[in-house]
Structures are given as structure tokens and as C-alpha cells.
Amino acid sequence: MAIKLKELSHRESRVAPGHRACAGCGSIIAIKEVLMAVEQPVVISFATGCLEVATTIFPYSAWRVPYIHCAFENSAAVMSGVEAAYLSLKKQGKLPGESGNKDIKFIAFGGDGGTYDIGFQALSGAMERGHDMLYVCYDNQAYMNTGIQRSGSTPRGAATSTSPAGRVIPGKTQFRKDLTKIMAAHDIPYVAQSTPDRWRDLMTKVQKAMEIKGPKFLNILSSCFRGWRCEPQESLEVTNLAVETRFWPLYEVENGKWKLNYKPKKHVPIEEWMKLQRRFQHILKPQNKHLLEEIQRDIDRRWDELLFLCGEEAGPKPEQS
């Protein structure tokens, strides 16, 4: 069913105004879209991180849905407990109020630090156990809440507080972990990635996930203008370019079947994405041309692999090569 914003506009945002996220925060847009797409009652958990901090400064909470934060590495484990409690209380007829008659959805959220790194074990365990929940990673590619330190999701070359672009070392030296693929390898019913600027894609995926019983994983590339060193109003444009440059392909894996959701019409070089972000400015300097080429080769290789998995024809190649 197609998403119609006019119809949706009758719904109240489940994220109330008055939260303390930065002006132009890309991640909170992502979360707002996720919750806007869910029609059913929903209970959410959060890993420690920017959004957890920004939305629940006591005595104020921006969450119009039941919400729990416990610690950094355990959003998935906490939600396992909530879901198990629901199953147990439901079968015993002990759910409070009207809750017993409702089909409640469970969504666990975490940033890339809380998902790729410190929370990875809890996520992997929860997915393996088959809890009926959606895990959503809002991936802004570094530990933004603690001051922009590198994470397992930070792309090669990016300058962060702990992988600065120095005189000798040009930013992060390792490539990022491909978490979406790792989650697909868990062989769970639904795995997808999206971005908040592609709101129709994102919300359709969430709605699809809500219709599927069992563990689901959605990885959302969402920008942090502070960490990416771009402008707040560019929060959505910058993730749009991540899709166009094929850095962040839109795809889904449903019951083991890979599907590409969007194929850019032309080969947009990765530097177009990097140009918007000063965390990559050193990579664009002539002396680091070899690095840029290496990064481009990596993106091309991953894209070709994805096309193969999705049963797609090879796409357009770089013009000069």
C-alpha cells in the first residue's frame, strides 16, 4: 500500500516537540518516520546515545509511546524482555487495561555505536532467538553523543575525534563493517536499509516489517551535521547523495530473497558525497588521490556484489575507466 502523506497527516507525531536534539538532526527525522509508519500500538527501547539523551531529559520526555532506556549495549536485550513479558502476560490474561486486546509492536533503537559495536552481541542474540521485534539502527557513522569518535560504522578516510586527519594518518584507516549484510546472514525474515530523505522507501519498509512476525532489522543511514561537518539544512540532501553514489544502496532481504529498491541512473563518483562533508576534506586533496580511488574501488566492488545478490544486471560504470 502506497504511503500518502495527506492521509498520514491526521496522525500525531509520536515524537513530541520540545526535545533537545540539535536543530536539523537527521537521526530524529529517521525515528519520527519509523514511528509515523507504524499504525499499531508500539513500545520502544533505546540504547544510550544522542537521541536517548536529547529526548528524555528529566522531567521531560518527548515519547508519546511507552519507552525504556536501560544502558548502551542492551537495547535489543531489554526489548527481548519486554516482548517476552507481553507474550507471558497475554497468554495468562494479565495485560493491564485495554492492552490485552491489542496487537502491540516492539521496536528497539540504537545508534551505530550501540548497534555495530557495543550492542552487537545483544542484537545478534535477540535476532537469533526470534523475538517478534524490529531493531532499527540509526547509523550516523560515529559516536556523536560522546564527541564524534570513530565506530565500526565510520567509513574509511573519515576524520573523527579519535581518527583525526593528521600529518601522517589521514583519518580512519579501516573500512566500515557491513552490518546490514551481517544481519542478513542471521537468516531472519526481514532485513533492509534505507535513509530518511527516501521517506517513502523507509516508511514502506517499516510497514512491511510490521506485517512480518519474528525478528526484523532496519539500518538507516542518518546524518549528523556536527560529525559529518556539513550544514544542518543539508541533513537530508547528504544522505540522498549517499544513495546516489551507491555508498548506501537501498535494498531489502525478505525471507532470504535480496531485492534492490533503487538503482541510480548514472555512476555518481563518491567524491560528490564527500564534497558536502568536511570530515572528508583531506581525502579530496591531490596527495590523497590514491585513497579516494581505493574508496571508490571498494564501493564499486560492494555494489557489484549487491547487484549479484539481487539478481540485477551490472549498472553503469565510471565514465573514464
Binding site: A16, P17, G18, H19, T55, T56, F58, P59, Y60, S61, A62, W63, R64, V65, P66, Y67
Partner: peptide, 8 residues
């Protein structure tokens, strides 16, 4: 926080 959404 007993009134979710009170950040308004």
C-alpha cells in the same frame, strides 16, 4: 516520567 510527550 509518567506523562510521555510532556517535552511540549
Amino acid at each position: 516520567i509518567l506523562q510521555g510527550g510532556n517535552s511540549v
